[in-house]
């Protein structure tokens, strides 16, 4: 039995129609807010310390250390492509084109793996270690981003398996949209890291 309660005395307008439940999407949004702030704090600290070093004419990067732009660019381009691909998955599932959605989700995970592999290679080339204050900041920020990308791959993969199990369709694609949103933010966070650490150094 549904109890409907009206109120005339307060004079509020009629209640709007119920919103479509978007629980996973809302939850993902909140979790992403926390993650973004974690990076914001660290990147703010990195920028603050770098500005202080420049202001006092101290070198920021240790002697002999070069942060090559090319690996950073490759990682950035790879992630940008993955952002397009994951959005392709959303549009495909919206059109009930399941084979293309599977392909796009699989490609997203693959590109995520390529990004992690590329960054791991980059670590070996940078000539900086965690035993240096700057290296500590760089490894913490990029390492946390690798963890974020890894979690994103699990999220996308999980949604892909759910889709394979027949869960999502054009009418209900919340899980895929939530995973895509997570992935877009992952790419966005890396764009800030790329600009801060790789471009402006």
């Amino acid at each position: 039995m549904t109890l409907v309660i009206a109120d005339d005395s307060i004079g509020l307008p009629p209640a709007p129609p119920p919103a479509r439940p978007r629980v996973l999407l809302i939850g993902t949004g909140f979790a992403l807010a926390g993650i973004v702030l974690a990076f914001a704090g660290l990147i703010g600290l990195y920028l603050g310390r770098r500005a202080a070093a420049i202001e006092s004419n101290r070198p920021w990067l240790p002697e002999g250390v070069t942060i090559d732009l090319t690996p950073g660019n490759v990682a950035m381009i790879g992630l940008l492509i993955s952002a397009v691909v994951v959005q392709w998955a959303v549009y495909s599932i919206a059109d009930d084109d399941r084979p293309r959605a599977y392909l796009a989700l699989g490609l997203t995970v693959l590109l995520g793996g390529a990004y992690i592999n590329g960054m791991a290679f980059n670590y070996t080339q940078m000539g900086i270690t965690v035993h240096d204050p700057v290296g500590l900041l760089i490894f913490t920020i990029t390492g946390m981003h690798l963890a974020m990308a890894g979690a994103g791959m699990i999220f996308v993969g999980l949604m892909a398996f759910r889709a394979l199990g027949g869960q999502y369709s054009g009418r209900d694609r919340e899980g895929i949209v939530a995973a895509a949103m997570y992935w877009h933010v992952t790419v966005l966070v890396f764009a800030v890291i790329w600009f801060t650490i790789f471009v402006t150094k």
Partner: peptide, 8 residues
């Protein structure tokens, strides 16, 4: 089971 159309 309640459908709300009021602040209270």
């Amino acid at each position: 089971a309640v459908t709300v159309a009021s602040a209270t």
